[in-house]
Amino acid sequence: MEFKDLGIEAAKLLGMGIAIGFGAIGPGIGLGLIFSKAIEAVGRNPEASGKVQGIMYIGMALTEALAIFALVIAFMIRYA
């Protein structure tokens, strides 16, 4: 079977997988960096853990939003 015979449904499934698969790489690396640095900071200065946590959660939300964009796009490709 040739690629052009795949049909629109199969193309949608492929597109969904590719969108979320590639979209999760960058935010994954970013989240790892954020948490490793946060743990390092708390390890060096345990008294500052409250402040570090607040900033960490905001950074997490901003980074994670990118993965969520990819996820929403993936859902839209498939279901909308």
Binding site: A61, E64, A65, I68, F69, L71, V72, F75
Partner: peptide
């Protein structure tokens, strides 16, 4: 998108 994506997912 953040709120929608998280809860919908």
């Amino acid at each position: 998108f953040r709120l929608f994506g998280n809860i919908f997912a």
